[in-house]
């Protein structure tokens, strides 16, 4: 049979759909593992520490830097319209609605997501998962579920931390460097930010990004070929795939939220 571009397109399409089905099945397995005893509290806490606590310095530093840049850019733009007193509102809204969840998501993908894929991939290549199976311990329950749950859990917390440090960075630039009134900065922020449209949307976005990262990072590691090149490719694939899905999900949530 000849291999025409249509055949190749069909093969690509069907393999993509099969892949999507496998990830959905895998995600279902994680959900089942969460509700099935024994409760692996210690392993989840350990995974939260690895993915969350070890990312705190990075998130705080990045949030502060992004807030400072927003403060500078926001001030130079607003001052043209005589609206520099709204700097707090601009910095706060941009951080809460978009940059907080998205930049935190991308940073956590690069730090904790890639580490998760590489760690599980290495466990595949050194037969550690087979070792667990031979002890009648489900690797999905023992290894995958705690890591996926931890990634989903820490993302909203880290995003909130990013936003707080971003607002502080904007404050440092706007109030301490440029000389705006501190009370005006905070008052404009407080008046502009609503709970449902801004804070809740931000939390939902980061929770969805965390869940996406948890599923994709662990899936790529779990299905990694058992060799060094396979682990490296799976890690790259996890970072790229999750980043693309995160940006797509960001658009979908923003659009459906009715902004």
């Amino acid at each position: 049979m000849t291999d025409t571009p249509i055949h190749r397109l069909g093969r690509f399409g069907s393999s993509w759909i099969v892949g999507l089905g496998r990830i959905a099945n895998f995600a279902g397995g994680i959900v089942l593992a969460i509700v099935r005893p024994p409760w692996r509290v210690q392993r989840v806490v350990r995974a939260v520490y690895d993915a969350g606590v070890l990312s705190v310095a990075l998130i705080c530093g990045a949030g502060f830097a992004v807030g400072m840049v927003l403060g500078l850019q926001g001030y130079t733009t607003l001052v043209r319209f005589g609206a520099q007193e709204s700097l707090g509102a601009v910095v706060g809204l941009v951080l809460i609605r978009e940059l907080g969840p998205v930049v935190t998501g991308l940073l956590v993908i690069g730090r904790a997501g890639s580490a998760t894929t590489a760690e599980i991939g290495a466990m595949v290549s050194t037969q550690q998962l087979d070792g667990l199976r031979m002890m009648s311990i489900d690797p999905m329950h023992f290894v995958v579920m705690p890591k996926a749950l931890a990634l989903a859990f820490v993302m909203p917390l880290l995003s909130s931390l990013f936003i707080v440090f971003g607002v502080f960075g904007g404050y440092v630039v706007g109030v301490e460097l440029v000389g705006l009134d501190g009370g005006s900065y905070m008052a404009s922020l407080e008046n502009a930010v609503g709970f449902r449209d801004d804070v809740l949307q931000s939390l939902v976005k980061s929770a969805v990004f965390g869940a996406l990262l948890g599923v994709i990072a662990t899936y790529r590691g779990f299905t990694s070929p058992g060799n060094a090149m396979g682990v490296s490719r799976s890690t790259t694939s996890a970072v790229v795939t999750t980043s693309v899905w995160l940006l797509l999900a960001d658009y979908v949530i923003t659009a459906f939220w009715g902004v």
């Binding site: 466990m123 050194t126 037969q127 550690q128 087979d130 070792g131 667990l132 199976r133 031979m134 002890m135 009648s136 489900d138």
Partner: peptide
């Protein structure tokens, strides 16, 4: 099935070539 295998594996012990210890 995987569940059936778990039952059988409780009667087995396996030493892997590289140990397969959890690092």
């Amino acid at each position: 099935s995987e569940r059936g295998l778990q039952r059988v594996r409780r009667r087995l012990g396996m030493l892997f070539q590289d140990g397969a210890l959890l690092d």
